[in-house]
Design a protein around this nucleic acid. Structure first.
Lengths: 156, 156
DNA sequence: CGCGGTAATGATAACCATTATCAAGTAAAC
DNA sequence: GTTTACTTGATAATGGTTATCATTACCGCG
């Protein structure tokens, strides 16, 4: 489905890995250590782009974990509340999640309305334009997301 | 809930009204005339910003209509498939809809993550940036949407 | 004008992602 | 080791959306 090349154990985007960043943040928050949470954090760290809770759950189960779906949702909600994961709605009624990189780097998504594939893109001019809008409106903007919908190369 | 000021019967944004535009498009498509569809089209034409299917349904029922919820969903899906309405996902698991204006003018949304309020904004530089991205990627982009999330004036 | 074919309707059941519940398990403090 | 209360996983409940289906109503045709 998604074009994961290698399931790298961590992506070092220059600075510290998200995995370490998240672990530290959780410890600082005072949460108790638990294998379910560790498992979800590891799964997120090893994913190239966004994934749904159910996708994460079934991937973990097929890797031998006995984690329950509720724990996946709980962990994602916790991490999302801490700003460690970004939630993406592609419009198909399923929420998708991906790690928020500590250096602020992020991307947006191209969604194929035919096959449902999701690809990522990154664009500085777009970010710039969004920040200008955020400054201008009477609203405290904490996050933003952009989705471009259409047909991917294969479906076109 | 949302801050609708005036429920104008139609918005003439310079050119023809969306109402007329939609009616013509439906006739051209060869759909049979029906009161349920007319009712939903009228409801959409008279709304300032986006509304959920359930909101539209209960508004119509309280106005005396006997329309069923299924017909609201069906009509919205039909109009969406024809490009006459835009679907917006604010991230709360509820799809919202608003008319797509024939002149191409459109806006994006500010979503308050505290109270759920949705406001609209419009920005030419942002549109420009998005079009440039659309030209650059290996993807046929048909539509786009942007959501800025945070806290509205009241919740801040 | 009435008839027939069939699109459209509205009530309701089914679906499915997500959330809440709760008894059992377990990490950390003492 | 014991206690405390945070976590867990199974499962029930929730709620938006979609599918089903018998009935209704639009519209071309005779």
């Amino acid at each position: 489905m998604s074009s994961q090349h290698a399931h790298s154990h961590d992506h070092d985007h220059g600075g510290e890995s998200w995995d370490a960043h998240a672990t530290v943040a959780l410890a600082r928050k005072g949460t108790r250590r638990s294998s379910a949470r560790d498992t979800v954090v590891a799964a997120l760290a090893g994913q190239e782009c966004c994934a749904s809770a159910q996708e994460i759950h079934s991937r973990l189960r097929s890797d031998g974990s006995t984690i329950g779906i509720a724990s996946v949702y709980r962990t994602l909600e916790l991490l999302h509340g801490m700003g460690l994961v970004t939630r993406i709605d592609t419009g198909d009624g399923v929420a998708r999640f991906e790690p928020t990189h500590p250096d602020g780097a992020h991307h947006h998504h191209l969604v194929c309305t035919t096959c449902g594939a999701v690809e990522a893109f990154q664009d500085d001019a777009l970010e710039e334009a969004i920040h200008r809008v955020a400054d201008r409106v009477d609203f405290r903007v904490d996050a933003h997301d952009v989705a471009l919908r259409g047909a991917c190369r294969a479906c076109r």
